[in-house]
Design a protein around this nucleic acid. Structure first.
Lengths: 109, 109
DNA sequence: TTAACCAGTTTGTATTATAAACCAGAGCGG
DNA sequence: CCGCTCTGGTTTATAATACAAACTGGTTAA
């Protein structure tokens, strides 16, 4: 009935474009390497790193570091179950809001 | 083909939830009074004021102040043509990105 | 040995969303 | 008339945060 208030309650962690890109990519790939993710999103390394740790802290992704030939670090990121549901909820919420907004437009307030 | 990079180029002025709410409300109502807008969005006065001036500076809304009985201020906000197209472009861009993202999911990278 | 490179992390900065404080006038109560 | 509160906002302050630049620790190349 009042979709506009709902908008301000969108999950900000997912809403941020960079993280929305990361989460969407991971939702498609399930798992990805750091550099691959960087290429997909076009983010700088530092940027990607900090966004990832925010997502990790929220439990939306799991980050694991392997060492190739015991030397070169290789970070792989995978989306968690919570992450998937959070992303889907986000889109659903946005859809719902948008649908109601369209109704409003037809009614003319 | 690479929808994730596109996400980081979404119009940030519109993307911000508070302003998305404002713009959506105005898109539906065409014109609204300050206090009505505040009620619709649930924002505090200060918050709404600062978001509005950002939107005004961008040319997305036009703000005009009348004085009722020459004394009490009454601010009415209306969405501009640019504002409407910017909002529509935003949704279109988001839809397009989302569509391509779904394709990716089906293909499995 | 030094230079360049890989794979990231940490630090710094500049922006900005939000709330709190403020302001000017209006309409009371006493 | 003098405070007091209400209306309708604006300005200021702060806390978060997006982003890039600088850094780290190890590796290969010259």
């Amino acid at each position: 009935m009042m979709p506009f208030k709902e908008m301000t309650r969108l999950d900000k962690l997912i809403h941020e474009p960079a993280r929305l890109a990361i989460m969407s990519a991971l939702d498609a790939c399930t798992m990805a390497e750091f550099l691959f993710l960087q290429e997909l999103t076009g983010l700088t390394k530092g940027n990607l790193s900090s966004h990832l740790s925010k997502l990790e802290k929220a439990g939306y992704v799991a980050i694991s570091k392997q060492f190739v030939r015991k030397k070169i670090p290789h970070t792989t990121i995978r989306i968690s179950h919570e992450g998937k549901t959070a992303l889907h909820n986000y889109w659903e919420q946005l859809d719902r809001i948008r649908e109601v907004t369209k109704q409003w437009q037809k009614k003319g307030i």
